[in-house]
Design a protein around this nucleic acid. Structure first.
Length: 489
RNA sequence: GCCGCCUUAGCUCAGUUGGUUAGAGCGCUAGAUUGUGGAUCUAGAGGUCCUCGGUUCGAGCCCGAGAGGUGGUACCA
């Protein structure tokens, strides 16, 4: 060894390691959600993890700093590339690139890892998995309704019980109509109003009122500058956000009183009415998908309907503190994204599942189906001279569809049993010299032993008893192991 | 980005007014038990006391700066 400083064994912040149990849970969610997407007639599309930065560029938070928000690197030819931060921007690029040859409307789904170079927080990572479905090339509100219905079905397929989640729908056009109504014309002020409206569920009407006016001082001591609206304008905004609750038709009727009459407001109302009709005919209930005027979503590219999925589960963390899960999915209509490449306006709408967050939510809610990852049957490496016997036994088990492995360490029998225990193995196969000479095999049922061990206090007795241990003719290895594995499954 | 708190073994943490070789519990590796998981006992491995600078005869401890972590907040395509 040299004197070079040893590296610290740690994952970069915001990146998590997942073990078998979590991997299995996420895979299952992905498979179930993708099956729903395919049933709705969406085709799979996979694109690379890197895109040229200019293909992502316009909607970065700050176009002057290409490394902010995304992980970027420079290629040999000095072009900037960046890891994708979502699956929508790559879709827009793909559609623009292959527009001539695609069936239109183009319906595609995609799953994959995305990366965001920002400060991680509770339930917020710099690398996570998304699962998207989008329809490109249809301006019909029914395209939005279909996406919403499919999202609702996707959550059910992932294992969320009815009532545990809801989809909240709004329209950017309504929000724009609201701006007209409240007399907000300056662009910066519009953004401030939208951000304030978006916080209704967390801060309540009073907190939003402060943000619409001068600003708000939060409990950490940080001050958020407000939108600077006059009192009357602020109340108009608040009456808009208060219009939620009840059936979709009821909310629409209330909203018509606030934003009806402005061109954009009327357009938004018509869109949402069409979505409501389609949802109703597809059997999506009022308690599952509702119109919620305070939903805003991101500020950059949405142009029409927006949707957000929220969890209604209440849960606590290890310390007993209530856990707040952010949205577990969302989407909306983005009619200008493809036009960046082609100059031609192409309407599009889509939804994205936050798979990692959904898996965490299911785990916290105790609804995880892949409760634990069982280990393989362990063939004990008893004697160097008989290694061939062990590999032959493992091969027989594998051929019969039973996960099996030969212990590959050099420890004695006791550590090997500990190893099998820790792997949650269903059984250990013991082929010592005695067994081989007698044409037998000893099989230890580890699940049964785990149960019996709780009643034993004396180690000598525990060892003498050899709980859960059976002998069988060597020729019946597979049948005997199968009986034990299936009993424990 | 802004505000607060924190940083000593793999984990959770002690560490006296600044004093010699920095500790505990858990975990890990093994032995007791020559072929058996739990419990018990025993032994062992494991440390740039976050980093740099300063004060001091002497710093894990005091001072300054920085880094990292964490919790809010901002932002969240």
């Amino acid at each position: 060894m040299t004197d070079a400083p040893r590296p610290e064994a740690r994952a970069p912040r915001g990146f998590v390691d997942r073990r078998a149990r979590d991997v299995a849970a996420e895979r299952r969610i992905l498979a179930d959600v993708c099956a729903v997407y395919e049933r709705y007639g969406f085709e799979a599309l996979d694109t690379g993890a890197l895109e040229y930065a200019d293909a992502l560029g316009k909607f970065l938070p700050d176009a002057d700093r290409p490394n902010e928000g995304v992980f970027a690197l420079q290629d040999d030819d000095e072009q900037w590339m960046a890891l994708r931060y979502d699956l929508t921007a790559p879709l827009a690029r793909f559609v623009a690139q292959h527009w001539e040859s695609l069936p239109k409307p183009f319906r595609r789904y995609a799953t994959g890892t995305v990366w965001r170079n920002e400060k991680p927080g509770p339930g917020r990572f710099r690398e996570f998995t998304q699962c998207d479905a989008d329809t490109v090339g249809s301006a019909r509100p029914e395209a939005d309704a279909e996406i919403i219905a499919m999202a609702a079905e996707g959550f059910a397929a992932a294992g969320l019980p009815a009532g545990a989640y809801s989809l909240k729908i709004n329209s950017r056009k309504l929000l724009n109509g609201l701006m007209t109504r409240a007399g907000v014309t300056v662009e910066g002020q519009k953004l401030a109003v939208l951000r304030a409206v978006d916080k209704l569920d967390r801060l309540g009407p009073d907190g939003v009122r402060l943000l619409l006016g001068e600003g708000r001082l939060d409990e950490s001591g940080a001050f958020t500058k407000g939108a600077g609206l006059a009192a009357a304008a602020a109340e108009a905004v608040l009456s808009f956000t208060a219009a939620g609750g009840g059936s979709r038709a009821e909310v629409l009727s209330r909203l018509a009183d606030v934003v009806g009459g402005s061109a954009e407001g009327d357009e938004g109302l018509a869109d949402l009415a069409a979505i409501d009709m389609a949802l109703t005919r597809m059997g999506v209930g009022e308690d599952l998908a509702m119109i919620e005027p305070s939903v805003v979503r991101g500020l950059e590219y949405y142009t029409g309907a927006v949707y957000e999925a929220e969890l209604n589960l209440s849960m606590t963390d290890d310390a007993g503190q209530p856990v707040r899960f952010g949205s577990v999915g969302g989407g909306g209509r983005y009619d200008d994204l493809v036009a960046r490449f082609t100059g031609q306006p192409v309407p599009a709408t889509g939804f994205s599942f936050g798979v990692s967050r959904l898996a965490a939510a299911l785990r916290a809610a105790g609804r995880e189906t892949a409760a634990r990852a069982r280990g393989p049957v362990v063939v004990i490496a008893f004697d160097q001279a008989h290694m061939g016997e062990y590999f032959a036994a493992a091969a027989e088990l594998r051929a019969a569809g039973i996960a099996a492995e030969v212990y590959l360490g050099s420890s004695g029998m006791r550590p090997q049993m500990k190893y099998a225990d820790r792997r949650l193995s269903p059984a250990a196969v013991i082929l010592g010299g005695d067994e081989i000479a007698a044409g037998l095999v000893t099989i230890k049922d580890l699940d049964l032993g785990r149960q019996l061990s709780s009643g034993v206090t004396d180690n000598a007795a525990w060892r003498a008893e050899r709980p859960g241990q059976v002998q069988a003719p060597r020729a019946q290895l597979v049948a005997a192991v199968r009986a034990i594995v299936e009993a424990g499954a």
